[in-house]
Computed example of a mutant assay.
Amino acid sequence: MSRPIKFRGKRLDNGGWVYGNLVTYNNKPAIQDYYQSNGEIFLVDPETVGQYTGLRDSKRTEEYPEGQEIYEGDIVRYQDAYDTSSECGYDWEETLSVGVIEWYDEEAKFDVTNRESIGLEEFWEDIDQAEVIGNASEHPHSLEQKESAAE
C-alpha cells in the first residue's frame, strides 16, 4: 500500500494553509498547490512545513467524512498506556495523552511526543482512535494547556 507524498505549510502572503508538493522557489521553501489551483507556487514559512503521514484521525465530520489527515506538526489526543510494573511483572494502565506528530530520522518514522508507552508499536495500529486537536505552529502554547487537561 502506498500513501500520497504531500506537504502543507502556511503561506507567507496571507497566512493560509497550502497543500501540495514541497519545492524551492528562489532558494526559499514553497509549496506547489495542485489541489486548489493550477499548480501555483506559494512561498511558505519553513517552521510550518509538515509532511502528510498517510493516516487520518477518528473525527468524522461533514468537512472530514473519512477523518482529518494527520500531518507532521499536528497536535493529537490519543489513548496511551503507562507502565505500572512491579516486581511481580508488567502491568499497563490506559491514559489519555496529548502530543505532537514528529519525524524521527534515526528510526525513519513518524511518532508522537509525550508517549508513555515508548517502544510499543500499537500506537500506529490504534491511530484511527486519535484525534487532531490543533497544530504546533499555529498554537504553540496550547500543547502545554492540553497536556495538563489530559492528566
Results as ranks from 00 to 15, higher is better:
residue 135 N to H: 14
residue 125 E to C: 00
residue 105 D to L: 00
residue 53 T to K: 14
residue 99 G to L: 13
residue 108 A to H: 13
residue 130 A to L: 06
residue 129 Q to P: 01
residue 8 R to F: 02
residue 46 P to H: 01
residue 129 Q to S: 03
residue 15 G to D: 14
residue 143 L to K: 05
residue 106 E to N: 05
residue 148 S to L: 12
residue 4 P to T: 00
residue 59 K to H: 04
residue 69 E to Q: 03
residue 74 D to K: 02
residue 134 G to A: 10
residue 20 G to T: 11
residue 107 E to I: 03
residue 138 E to A: 06
residue 102 E to H: 13
residue 8 R to Y: 04
residue 59 K to C: 05
residue 34 Y to Q: 07
residue 53 T to P: 13
residue 54 G to Q: 15
residue 116 E to W: 11
residue 3 R to D: 02
residue 24 T to L: 10
residue 148 S to K: 10
residue 151 E to N: 10
residue 74 D to C: 03
residue 60 R to K: 06
residue 102 E to N: 08
residue 112 V to N: 12
residue 86 S to L: 00
residue 27 N to G: 03
residue 37 S to K: 04
residue 11 R to Y: 08
residue 107 E to S: 13
residue 151 E to R: 11
residue 144 E to S: 07
residue 14 N to A: 07
residue 151 E to G: 08
residue 143 L to I: 07
residue 11 R to M: 05
residue 111 D to Y: 10
residue 73 G to H: 11
residue 82 Y to M: 09
residue 14 N to R: 13
residue 105 D to H: 04
residue 41 I to D: 10
residue 108 A to C: 15
residue 149 A to T: 07
residue 116 E to V: 03
residue 68 Q to D: 12
residue 41 I to L: 10
residue 21 N to H: 05
residue 71 Y to G: 10
residue 58 S to P: 12
residue 120 L to D: 14
residue 38 N to R: 03
residue 59 K to G: 06
residue 9 G to Q: 02
residue 49 V to D: 06
residue 18 V to G: 08
residue 106 E to A: 02
residue 135 N to S: 15
residue 104 Y to R: 06
residue 10 K to H: 09
residue 76 V to S: 05
residue 97 S to L: 05
residue 78 Y to W: 10
residue 49 V to I: 07
residue 118 I to T: 12
residue 125 E to V: 01
residue 103 W to M: 02
residue 84 T to Q: 01
residue 58 S to F: 11
residue 2 S to T: 05
residue 123 F to W: 13
residue 105 D to I: 00
residue 35 Y to W: 09
residue 125 E to G: 03
residue 61 T to K: 02
residue 58 S to K: 11
residue 118 I to G: 14
residue 68 Q to W: 13
